[in-house]
Nucleic acid binder design. Sequence first.
DNA 1: TTGAAAGCGCTAACAC
DNA 2: GTGTTAGCGCTTTCAA
Lengths: 343, 343
Amino acid sequence: MSTTIIEIAQKAGVSIATVSRAFTQNSSIHPDTRRKILRIAEENHYKPNPSARSLSSKRTDTIGVVLPELVDEFFSEIIRGIDEEAYKSQHYVLVASSHSQRNVLETVLEFMFSGRVEGVILMVPQLQNEFIKLISRSKRPVVLIDAPQNINQVVSFNINNFQGAYSVVEHIINHGYKKVGIIIGPEGNCDSDERFRGFSHALKKYNLPLDQDFIIRGDFTYRSGYYSFIRLMSQNKKPDAIFATNDMMALGIYEAARNSQIKIPQDVAIVGFDDIFSSRLLQPRLTTVHVPISELGSSAVRYLFKMINGEVDLHKPCRNELTTGLVIGGSCGCPISNAQIIF
Amino acid sequence: MSTTIIEIAQKAGVSIATVSRAFTQNSSIHPDTRRKILRIAEENHYKPNPSARSLSSKRTDTIGVVLPELVDEFFSEIIRGIDEEAYKSQHYVLVASSHSQRNVLETVLEFMFSGRVEGVILMVPQLQNEFIKLISRSKRPVVLIDAPQNINQVVSFNINNFQGAYSVVEHIINHGYKKVGIIIGPEGNCDSDERFRGFSHALKKYNLPLDQDFIIRGDFTYRSGYYSFIRLMSQNKKPDAIFATNDMMALGIYEAARNSQIKIPQDVAIVGFDDIFSSRLLQPRLTTVHVPISELGSSAVRYLFKMINGEVDLHKPCRNELTTGLVIGGSCGCPISNAQIIF
DNA sequence: TTGAAAGCGCTAACAC
DNA sequence: GTGTTAGCGCTTTCAA
């Protein structure tokens, strides 16, 4: 077959153990011997066989990533963050996006119990109890991305949805709007829930009422933004500002507004959440909450490695919130130029 | 450690060979025996150890995917296509995006020669000869996504850039525009080259001159679209239609046009290429070329499996072009409503 | 259809 | 610092 350790050992005139040592970091071997072996290995295109290596060492140099089906906008950014960090630590990344056809739980189980990976980064929108139990018992480290607030038996990295929502809503309140509506996300979605909490908290802080007529449930899609806006604005009692709990719905709102000749922000102010690329193209530019996506991935990996290396306790719960930022556009009523920033 | 084949063999009262057979597809084993073994395995949370398995069988059930750093818009779609198809064939997907800091060649080599994967899907924007040689000698199958037209020693799946460009340019020519400009992509980029070929061919076909003043080099970025448009339109001799060789540049064009009070399509018609999400938000909607992204990934994987299974020759070059589609918006002058389609 | 046994290529004690 | 050797957990002949 291909070159093995034996061949290299023979050519270098050493034992296979020594060849092995040449390829492992912390092993006592004479620098000259190592150099020689590595040279010969190079010449013979020799690479240690990963299967053999991990069979005897129990290490796989691989981490698993389970991603949900939907979050398109995040996907590439998250993976980028993960891959970059994994690469720094010389690890490979095994991905699995959890199709509808696929049983997510099964995939995770497979990942965790088959010994294919040393740890798992898990991102599932609706986290069931089943998972939590599994994770908290797992012998392999698992780090969640975007875990519900109320889950506290796990390690997770999250966007600070509450703070982000609070600050963007506070921003519009400071503009003087008093009838602030909200289009929330799908039921049971933790991001949506937290963003709603931030919204409510801001209203309360500024003594504004939480009007049920101004709360509409969307599902984070463009389409639902479109129709939710129409519903909100066709009531007798109309909001003067709307917080779309994600940018995608804000895009839908813009179209609906255009179609019904409603001016943003003159007739109604709009703010979003996520700072997706497309939202920068809107006229006026959308005021929204910036989310540090790739950081979410890289932080998760960094922590995962700490767990793998035993620097932190595998089962010590740990919730981490990444700070969001406010992106000011013209949609909230701020007097900025309509011209876009060239990015 | 965790459960091994021996334990299961004992509990089932059979030899380890039989347990092994229960887990492999084409092996002669009594259905009852298999059922029993699988049940016991399930009860004991037993999964065959992948390293051990591939050490003795030479199979890894894993394919490698090397992606370039940039193509964000494609990234998630491509991976989705790949993952879905790989999942159907019970394979895992090992990804590596080739950061600038990383030596792509090295990664590919690692993938191909370390025995970690059974085949590789490779997507690199600028393909050097070094690669081609490597691939055509490789013992492991390699499928390229988006390979230059002139490379014919490899297996590749590509967008039919020529046809796509031809048809969208033909479309504007049919509108009666005679002074058609083009903003091309970065030097040496094969997509850009082919799109330019399609453009030229259409002009020639309809006896329109290929005016050097109407050819500007961009680099596929928003920014370059912006500035290239300004350059084109500040000449004395202005084009009456512009083919932006990707949508991202068309987005930049729209902003530049807005800033300089140039009306699309009244003053100048614009068409793009790629059909990215953001382009659907433009007013008027951009006429562009739709690209079957996820199909690119899944077709590549399907073919890779054929190679892995020995159904096709590893080194028989094979170029595949996926058909593009025309997406008609208002930017070319077509009389469609400004209202967007709700998608 | 099943079992026995020889590896797959490497790592990690343990000796020297 | 280096060699010897016993596995790691599985697949796959070969026999029965």
